[in-house]
């Protein structure tokens, strides 16, 4: 039983990271119907930037700085690379994101080298006697949880709540939702549609950057580090429903946990840890066959 909870808890932690990156993917998909294949590489690059900043600065100085840089990068990419193909068929834009994937990955290797680097977890903070983050583990009865796993979970939940509040209660958030639904009517409301897309990319890059900063301590910092995460994030986003931010995070959690459980509890002979990816993907496909637009996704509206 302890093993079970252990698997669940670590699954929740990695699942939160998948969920965060999935959230980043969903933010872009909702407004432009584009699957951003460069999402993981954007996060990887900002994590490398973070690493460079950490060579001379504190973690908590670096953190906001990196988020701002990420937002700037997202906005820049939208304005300079995505804007020229806006309105092109979706597959074309997907290929553009694949091109960005190659560029970002190559630039990171060129600038920082391919050798894996250690990356620190957020350092310990104590607020009114309660300890947050840092090294070590916390005993929670059935099992122990590492502080970093807890940190990841807290960040994921906090970001989700923040985004919910942003989209639900601020004029800008509302305008972004409106733009995603009906760009022409949005313009008639005085909304600058182009600017909303830029903000969407900036936001998405920022959320992705957090995912990168949180996963790097677990998997080492190196150019291909986000590739596997990206694939799981895609799966999570699709599982939850590509237009649902909540679905993205829930999808990530489901995948993180089921991946661990499949690895531990299926027969080693013909499934087991070697096949956990395959079985997890199979589960996702089965769910999709029952709900073709994901668990929380809206039914596809057919246009004639």
């Amino acid at each position: 039983m302890e093993e079970f909870w252990q698997q669940v808890v670590t699954g929740i932690a990695t699942g939160s990271v998948y969920g965060l990156l999935a959230l980043a993917i969903v933010l872009i998909y909702r407004s432009t119907s584009v699957l951003n294949f460069a999402q993981g590489e954007m996060a990887m690059l900002t994590t490398f930037v973070a690493w460079s900043i950490l060579q001379w600065g504190e973690y908590w100085v670096m953190f906001p700085l990196v988020l701002v840089i990420a937002a700037g990068m997202g906005a820049f990419i939208e304005r300079v690379i995505i804007r020229p193909v806006e309105g092109a068929p979706v597959l074309n834009i997907i290929i553009v994101t694949l091109g960005m994937f190659a560029i970002l990955n190559n630039v990171a290797t060129w600038r920082w080298g391919g050798i894996p680097k250690g990356f620190p977890a957020p350092p310990e903070i104590e607020v009114t006697g309660i300890r947050f983050m840092g090294e070590g583990a916390l005993d929670i009865g059935p099992t122990v949880v590492s502080y970093h796993d807890l940190t990841i979970l807290v960040f994921a939940v906090a970001i989700m709540v923040a985004l919910y509040v942003f989209f639900q209660y601020t004029p800008l958030g509302l305008a972004m939702r409106a733009t995603a639904q009906n760009p022409v009517a949005s313009r008639l409301m005085g909304i600058r549609v182009g600017r909303m897309l830029t903000v969407g990319w900036a936001l998405s890059a920022t959320v992705g950057a957090v995912a990168g900063l949180l996963i790097a301590p677990l998997i080492l910092l190196q150019p291909p580090m986000m590739m596997g995460v990206l694939l799981f994030a895609f799966a999570a986003a699709v599982l939850g429903g590509l237009d649902s931010p909540v679905g993205a995070v829930v999808g990530g959690l489901i995948i993180g946990v089921s991946e661990n459980l499949v690895g531990t509890y299926t027969p080693k002979e013909w499934l087991g840890p070697d096949m956990k990816l395959t079985v997890t993907l199979l589960i996702i496909v089965v769910v999709l066959l029952i709900r073709p637009t994901g668990i929380f996704g809206r039914r596809a509206m057919r246009r004639v």
Binding site: A175, G190, I191
Partner: peptide, 12 residues
């Protein structure tokens, strides 16, 4: 929400 969007140009 539709009505709020109608007033968007006041706030933006």
């Amino acid at each position: 929400e539709n009505l709020r969007l109608g007033a968007y140009s006041r706030f933006s």
